[in-house]
């Protein structure tokens, strides 16, 4: 019973990982930018949720009205900067690493390095849960999973069905040729950067719902989220979702059966093994690369 509960909870938490990883995966696969600053946006999204909800006594989910546009602008601005600098894929990793460090330090200067958490009266979701038989699901994990599924489904449809999506896939395959056929990659990539920023706001909100915040958490996401991106296949949104669930299940089960401290050990060992066997990702079907 314990293991089943851990598996299901892990899978639901995996939704949060997928939500965090989806944006990173898309910018890497489509725009050829490894945007570590994405973690910074998630962090700021989380802190903004906390701040707005706490000081204006707003429902945390309603704070999205503010955080989503803000993060859209931030994400678009970062992408615009990358475009202007004409960075190679690898240099984008270094530049965005610099940006991430600045973001974390600024967050720490504003909100301090201590743990901050929304007070219980503005955040009703933290304590609620849904029980099905003897299985219990915290509402926060359901929200995470639901939002992740929504984002993945929407972006999958956009990429497959719409003109902008086709144009983006064309950019992913060959930017120069796409440009020759009239695809304005500058405008599209800034738009995509904005959308990815908006997903960072969602992920930040979900994280703030169930966790206490400290600036250094951004570093803690690093390993897990990159694991999800690589396992899912770079640029593969649906693969990212599946990988997020898998990683969540592994972490959950190892934590329950062995010890929470052992989870990263098992997880990263599994990732290295997976990379050895399938370097293109577990769930990649050839994909954009």
């Amino acid at each position: 019973m314990n293991v089943i509960q851990a598996t299901l909870t892990g899978a639901l938490i995996g939704g949060l990982y997928a939500l965090m990883a989806a944006g990173l995966s898309v910018t890497w696969g489509v725009l050829r930018v490894i945007n570590l600053a994405h973690f910074g946006l998630i962090l700021i999204g989380a802190y903004l949720t906390f701040q707005v909800a706490d000081s204006w006594h707003l429902d945390p989910i309603l704070t999205l009205v503010i955080t989503v546009p803000a993060m859209f602008v931030a994400g678009a601005a970062i992408q615009w900067l990358f475009d202007r600098l004409r960075l190679t894929e690898f240099n984008s990793l270094l530049v965005s690493f610099g940006l991430l460090i600045i973001t974390i330090q600024v967050t720490s200067n504003i909100w301090s390095a201590d743990f901050r958490r929304m007070s219980a009266d503005v955040n009703p979701y933290a304590t609620q849960s849904v029980a099905i038989g003897r299985l219990v699901f915290p509402v926060t994990t359901l929200v995470a999973f639901g939002l992740a599924a929504l984002v993945v489904l929407a972006s999958h449809l956009v990429l497959r069905r719409t003109f902008a999506g086709r144009a983006m896939r064309a950019i992913a395959q060959d930017r120069a040729v796409a440009g020759a056929f009239g695809v304005d990659h500058r405008r599209l990539s800034v738009l995509l950067g904005g959308i990815v920023g908006a997903t960072a706001a969602l992920a930040g909100m979900v994280f703030a719902l169930s966790n206490a915040l400290t600036p250094d958490t951004a570093y803690e996401w690093f390993g897990t989220v990159f694991a999800v991106v690589i396992l899912g296949g770079i640029g593969e949104v649906v693969g990212t979702f599946a990988a997020g669930i898998l990683v969540g299940v592994i972490s959950g089960v190892v934590s329950a059966v062995w010890s929470p401290a052992a989870a990263p050990f098992v997880l990263f060992s599994a990732i290295i093994l997976a990379l050895l066997l399938r370097p293109q990702g577990l769930f990649a079907a050839g994909g954009v690369r």
Binding site: L87, N91, V95, F97, G98, L100, I101, I102, I104, V106
Partner: peptide, 15 residues
């Protein structure tokens, strides 16, 4: 300001 300056130096120099 330590990290802010370091991060800024890194981002600026790469560019």
């Amino acid at each position: 300001w330590n990290s802010i300056i370091l991060g800024g130096v890194l981002a600026l120099l790469v560019a």
